[in-house]
Each structure stands twice: as structure tokens, then as C-alpha cells.
Design a protein around this nucleic acid. Structure first.
Length: 247
DNA sequence: CTCACGATCAGCT
DNA sequence: GCTGATCGTGAGG
């Protein structure tokens, strides 16, 4: 981690959500925590296409109190709550009231890993996952999921609506080398028979161990014109499983 | 690694 | 009421 960690300019986010998603891979998420900073490298995102265009976007049917931020200016935090009091963080995109946003799904800890671990542990019940994190291993699991990422960085709905370009704000995105290799996949956890399964809205940085595991149905039947690509991490043996990926 | 299951919550129709 | 932009467990490969 080097450089000034200044917020990316609003113009970065005033583009189509798919472009913003791609550009965000490899960039830094920075959280002010007390005296210090927590910094993580973004490795998995999902674009949400917005009003009338993306059936699984909260904004698909128009503005509601919950998704209001998606219709506002770009580069604002849309934090919504999901099961069990968990939260997910999005960044509003486009800024032209199309209702677009990008969900931050996974990241790698770069600075303040122990504080992130402590924040995760504070919410974890006794069990094998708690034991893993207590033993200091599994750092790739710390931020590997949208709600895990929020828990580790202390992001909750108190941050909903904040401007992520504010100079001394609690949360922002900073420049870094963009991810070199990117793969697009369908969204996690939706039905392969649904029409929207053909769309690849999810982007991951290839080779990162912190990418959240596929849940629910497998991506192997993605359309259109899927290409089967063996997934491998640098320096590791190829894994047995194959996933359908589109460049 | 994968899958199936269920906890128990806000938002919406 | 019903439905998830989820996560952790536990069993199986």
C-alpha cells in the first residue's frame, strides 16, 4: 500500500455500471477506523443495470425508499440490509437516474487485517469458521462475500447515502493497478433456467483466492456461447472443477 | 471443493 | 404475509 489513497474522482463512477464494475477490480476500498485506515483490494463485483433493464436490481421497478441512492448522483454508498442483520455495500453508478450500482462482493485485506479479523469475530458464533479465523489463517476468507466484507470493515446502514468522493469521509475508493485478468460470469445463486442467467453481470479478478465461492447453482450452463475455461490460480495446480467464463 | 438447509429480518405488494 | 444482491454448518466427493 503506497501513495496518497485519495478518493477516485466522481467521473470514474459516471459511466455505465458494467464499465465501473470492470474498472473497480484491483482498486482499493478504504475505510477510516479510529486513528487508522483499513485498506482492501477489490477482486469481485456485480453490476446492477437498473430501471427496467435488470430484473434482479432493487431499482428495476423504480425508486423506493430503500434503493433511493441508486437513482441519485454517482459515487454514493448504497448500503442495504439482508438476512440476519447483515449488510451489503454498493456504489451508485452512471448518475443519470437509471438506477445503476455496483455491488462490492469480495476483496483482499491489504492493511489492518487484524482489525478486520476482530470485526468478523465479533459477529461470529462458536463453530469451525470462528476457530479458523482465531487461528489466524484463512485471510482469503475475511472479505470473501458482500456481507463479510461489510462486517470486517464496519460498514452498516449508518453509511447509506454517503458521498464516496468526500475528502475526509469515512469510506472511499482509491486508485491502484487495475486487475490484469478479468473473467465475467453470471450472478451467483440464480436459476440457470431463468432468462437473466444468460447475462454476465459478475466480474472477478482471475487468480484471486478471495473470490467468493459459487453458491447454489453452478455456472456451467451460462449462455450465450459459453467457453469452458479451466480455472487455475498462479503457481498452483489446475483444479478439477471447470467453470464457464467469458472474457 | 460442492451441495442442501435454515436462521429469523427488512422491504415490499 | 412472502421473498430474498447471505452466511455458516454439516455431509459427501
Amino acid at each position: 500500500v503506497s501513495g496518497a489513497l485519495r478518493p477516485l474522482p466522481r467521473a470514474f463512477f459516471e459511466r455505465d455500471a458494467l464499465v465501473v464494475a470492470r474498472e473497480l477490480l484491483g482498486r482499493l476500498l478504504v475505510r477510516r477506523a479510529g486513528d487508522g485506515l483499513l485498506v482492501a483490494r477489490i477482486v469481485e463485483v456485480e453490476a446492477y443495470g437498473g430501471l427496467g433493464c435488470d430484473p434482479s436490481a432493487h431499482s428495476f421497478r423504480g425508486e423506493t425508499p430503500r434503493c433511493r441512492v441508486m437513482f441519485g448522483p454517482a459515487a454514493h454508498a448504497y448500503v442495504y440490509s439482508t438476512h440476519q442483520g447483515r449488510c451489503c455495500l454498493n456504489v451508485s453508478a452512471a448518475g443519470d437516474a437509471r438506477g445503476q450500482a455496483v455491488l462490492l462482493r469480495a476483496a483482499e485485506p491489504l492493511l489492518g487485517e487484524e482489525a478486520m479479523r476482530a470485526a468478523r469475530l465479533a459477529r461470529l458464533p462458536a463453530g469451525p469458521t470462528r476457530e479458523r479465523l482465531l487461528r489466524g489463517g484463512a485471510s482469503h476468507e475475511l472479505l470473501s462475500g458482500p456481507a463479510r466484507l461489510c462486517a470486517a470493515l464496519g460498514i452498516d446502514r449508518a453509511l447509506n447515502g454517503i458521498d464516496l468522493c468526500a475528502p475526509r469521509g469515512p469510506l472511499w475508493l482509491a486508485d491502484a493497478e487495475p486487475a490484469a485478468r478479468v473473467a465475467w460470469t453470471p450472478r451467483v445463486g440464480l436459476n440457470p433456467k431463468s432468462a437473466s442467467f444468460a447475462w454476465c453481470w459478475r466480474a472477478v479478478a482471475r487468480g484471486s483466492r478471495a473470490v467468493s465461492a459459487p453458491r447454489g447453482l453452478h455456472a456451467a450452463s451460462a449462455q450465450p456461447s459459453p467457453r469452458r475455461v479451466p480455472r487455475r490460480a498462479p503457481g498452483r495446480a489446475p483444479r478439477g472443477a471447470q467453470r464457464t467464463l467469458r472474457e
